[in-house]
Design a protein around this nucleic acid. Structure first.
Length: 539
RNA sequence: GUGAGCGUAGCUCAGCUGGUAGAGCAUCGGUCUGUGGCACCGAGGGUCGUGGGUUCAAAUCCCAUCGCUCACCCCA
């Protein structure tokens, strides 16, 4: 046992002693989050570097957006999809008025009590309302429709409190209290669950439509979704994505984006993958009815037919009303024959969408990108249109999508941006890519230590420090032991950490002014001058 | 939100029908003050996920709880 460890043990307090009265406890990473440790981090870095290389080769430029945004941005981008917005985003309030927060806290926790009712209605409640009014004037509360309704409710409940004696006051008290609790003070902000909305927001905010040509932007970083974790699904996960924003919706853009992804997969030497493509038509616009809503109605009518409806499981039966498109990608084996016979959207596209889809396919063929048409590949959100695609890998488990994307021509305008800006993008899951790379076993990203400096003796140490610096300045990875080690120990350590060379510095080397360097793999050992050193330890 | 499986050393696991906690690997030290992989010797590291119950006695049986994993739901 090392001296350090021994000392640490002796000084460790007995189990009963709790330092500072705190419970002794194990901290662990929050559910759905994880540490990525060496040597895995080397592979992650390799992948990110490779992805940047490929994406930049297609002339995309990096954009970095904040990790949190106004909740409203994501809520609007996702639509009114209540589950996603309410349950699966990490949202929290950021207060600007401490005083209001304190008074709200008092109101919200005030117990219903006959004896104190008058004190509540004459002192506590009015102070809260007074502070609230000031905050509203200063714009310190969230000004969305729901919140303004709550504000009105507080005011009427306050009036009722004033009118009502203790006998009948319970109702007004309850309404006042629950409205106060529901009020959103300050800003509601959300950890980004995806980056497309942020990229569009930035595009709009900085007037990027005035830059020449289509904007081709990519991003790298963590996203947050509060879903139940499973294989390939984490609450903090990492995405790399790219968006093309501009006035063109040429199918060549879609095809190039997809081609780029297949190139990246090729670089990662992932062999088992399938590209699925589909067109999901277009949504309604003020000018004309889109072909998707028409198809959705047709599909729903079909699904409602008793002979079909009765063959669906409970989940799919529910989806007939909530989200009929989702019936298409049900996984239940017994539903498959029914789904096969349902009308396909590709057969119900309008002329423009059909032409776009046909061109996409010929563009992919031109680029020699193999694809599979999948009428079952759908998207839940309204602003998605036409091209959708996904690349799946069988090695990933139930969450088998490596990456996916699609066209969203209406989104920029929906977020308050200029009219006529089209968009398409993809996002890939780094966690899953890394899994697939590991599974394919073709990439080894670990970088060995180049040189281990084995030094012994007081005279050798300054030389060791100096030479380590020389090697490091030249870009070699060098391990210089902080404490003197016997040569035997030094070699053992060098071997264990995977060093390629050992630079031996002892009394002999100092005396002869020659360096001894040993190649660990071959056991070969050579003497040389310092001038030859750098050349010899190439990595 | 629902369901299933699993929790014993840093890791992989053993520990039968209750009787004082083990192996391999890893780590650290020694054999070894001029040479690593091998070998041998030794050491550290567990309130058997946590709490309760049954019992003279619980890692083992019962209950609860927490955690992990996978799948369903959802999937921007």
């Amino acid at each position: 046992m090392s001296e350090g460890a021994k000392r640490e043990k002796d000084e460790r307090p007995a189990k009963e002693v709790r330092q500072g009265g705190q419970e002794r406890r194990q901290f662990r990473a929050i559910k759905g989050t994880r540490d990525i440790l060496p040597p895995d981090t080397a592979l992650w870095n390799w992948f990110e570097a490779t992805a940047r290389e490929v994406i930049e080769a297609y002339n995309f430029a990096e954009i970095r957006t904040p990790i949190f945004e106004e909740t409203e941005l994501f809520a609007r981008a996702v639509g009114v999809e209540t589950d996603v917005v309410n349950k699966e985003m990490y949202s929290f309030e950021v207060y600007e008025s401490d005083e209001l927060v304190e008074r709200r806290y008092m109101v919200a926790n005030w117990p219903w009590n006959f004896d104190q009712y008058d004190f509540f209605r004459q002192q506590i409640a009015p102070r809260f309302v007074e502070t609230l009014k000031i905050a509203v004037d200063k714009g310190q509360i969230v000004r969305d429709a729901a919140n303004l309704r709550i504000y009105e409710e507080i005011k009427t409940a306050m009036a009722d409190l004033m009118d009502t004696g203790v006998q009948y006051g319970k109702n007004a008290f309850d309404r006042f209290q629950s409205a106060a609790r529901a009020l959103l003070i300050g800003e509601s902000i959300t950890l980004r669950p995806e980056a497309t909305a942020s990229v569009c927001r930035a595009y709009i905010e900085h007037g990027m439509q005035t830059r020449p040509g289509d904007q081709k932007l990519y991003y790298v970083g963590p996203m947050f979704r509060r879903e139940r974790p499973q294989k390939g699904r984490y609450r903090q996960f990492y995405q790399i994505g790219a968006e093309v924003l501009g006035t063109s919706d040429a199918p060549a853009i879609d095809a190039e984006l997809i081609e780029m992804l297949t190139v990246l997969i090729g670089r990662c030497k992932i062999e088992k993958w399938t590209l699925l493509i589909n067109s999901i038509g277009c949504p309604d616009t003020p000018e004309r009815k889109g072909c998707r809503p028409k198809y959705v109605e047709l599909l729903r009518a079909e699904l409602r037919k008793p002979e079909i409806f009765s063959k669906l499981g409970p989940d799919s039966q529910r989806r007939v009303e909530t989200n009929p498109l989702r019936v298409m990608d049900s996984k239940l084996p017994e539903e498959q024959p029914v789904i096969e016979k349902l009308p396909k959207i590709s057969e119900h596209l309008c002329a423009e969408c059909r032409e776009h889809y046909e061109k996409l396919k010929s563009e992919l063929a031109l680029r020699k990108v193999p694809f599979t048409e999948s009428p079952r590949l759908v998207r839940g959100l309204d602003y998605y249109m036409r091209t959708t695609f996904e690349i799946t890998s069988p090695v990933l488990g139930a969450q088998n999508a490596l990456c996916g994307g699609g066209r969203y021509d209406g989104l920029v305008e929906m977020l308050g941006g200029p009219k006529g800006i089209k968009g398409i993008g993809f996002a890939l899951g780094e966690d899953r890519f890394v899994d697939a790379i590991v599974e394919a076993k073709k990439i080894d990203a670990t970088r060995a230590v180049d040189v281990f400096v084995a030094w012994m003796g007081e005279k050798a140490y300054p030389e060791a420090v100096r030479l380590a610096r020389v090697l490091r300045d030249a870009g070699r990875a060098v391990e210089l032991p902080a404490r003197e080690m016997k040569f035997g120990k030094a070699f053992e350590r060098a071997d264990k950490i995977g060093a390629r060379y050992v630079l031996i510095l002892g009394d002999d080397e100092i005396a002869s002014k020659r360096l001894t360097i040993k190649t660990l793999a071959s056991g070969e050992q050579k003497q040389m001058g310092e001038s030859e050193l750098l050349d010899y330890v190439r990595h």
